[in-house]
Design a protein around this nucleic acid. Structure first.
Lengths: 133, 133
DNA sequence: TGAAATAGGACTATGTTAGTCCACATTTAA
DNA sequence: TTAAATGTGGACTAACATAGTCCTATTTCA
């Protein structure tokens, strides 16, 4: 399931916003207002980014977020993984897919789909947040 | 929303199966049985492929499906469009997206997302069914 | 005429995504 | 020391998309 979800869009917008506010803490409220992003949802996203050490957070009055990595150090692929969890181009290629699926075992299209998966991953790994800033 | 859905998987499996049965009509039931694909769902898929002139169908007893195009004439991209409808890597890039979305107008990440969309499309246009047969 | 096949509309079930609500923890300024 | 500003995080709900099912035609052939 390769796809840019709303959450990833929001994350990209937030990272862009924070990146462009060098040396200044940015609050979730600010990003939410400027980007027209639901505040609660955005908060969750920022928290995840903080937990993955992509952002630094400061609580309390005058708190906010700042970058902990350079945009070019953050591949789009890992951002998507952080926000939406593991992704694969087809359900069956995912590790946790225990379901009996056409792609398991000697499935007729497993190999070519796996190849495609690799190619898409490559593309998303080459892209970094700097491409969006 | 770029993704290989179950339906597209089933379509790929079916096309592979039909391609490998040269000069013989293949029934939906056969494909369903061999590929462990829900019959009703598969039928819908085959009908779509027929309506798009990818397959030829013959009704009635001894009927079935046969290829109407060579696998290398069918890009994966158009197959996905036929089966699942128009796809885009982000919801907002879709033509029918009338919703007020962050990516409309002067959205901060619209351009890079559009570029990414093009790149993914390229990849899926270069792939053809012959890569899966 | 009846069986084997495609054609296709309508519906349901399930899962995912997006979004909301609420209570709490931390920090700073007054 | 308290109130306001801010991040933290769990639980819930709403909306939507996908996958799958059911049922009834229609066509063709033996």
């Amino acid at each position: 399931m390769i796809r840019i979800s709303k959450k990833v869009e929001y994350a990209l917008m937030a990272l862009k916003f924070i990146s462009n506010s060098e040396h200044k803490l940015v609050t979730a409220r600010e990003i939410s207002d400027k980007g027209n992003i639901p505040y609660d949802l955005l908060s969750k996203i920022l928290q995840k980014l903080k937990n993955e050490n992509i952002l630094i957070s400061n609580q309390g009055t005058n708190g906010g977020y700042s970058m902990n990595k350079r945009p070019d150090e953050i591949p789009l692929f890992s951002l998507m993984n952080v926000i939406d969890g593991e992704t694969a181009i087809a359900e069956c290629l995912m590790d946790n897919s225990v379901k009996d699926c056409c792609l398991t075992d000697s499935c007729s299209i497993k190999n070519p789909v796996t190849v495609l998966q690799k190619e898409v991953e490559e593309l998303f790994k080459k892209k970094t947040i700097s491409d969006f800033v």
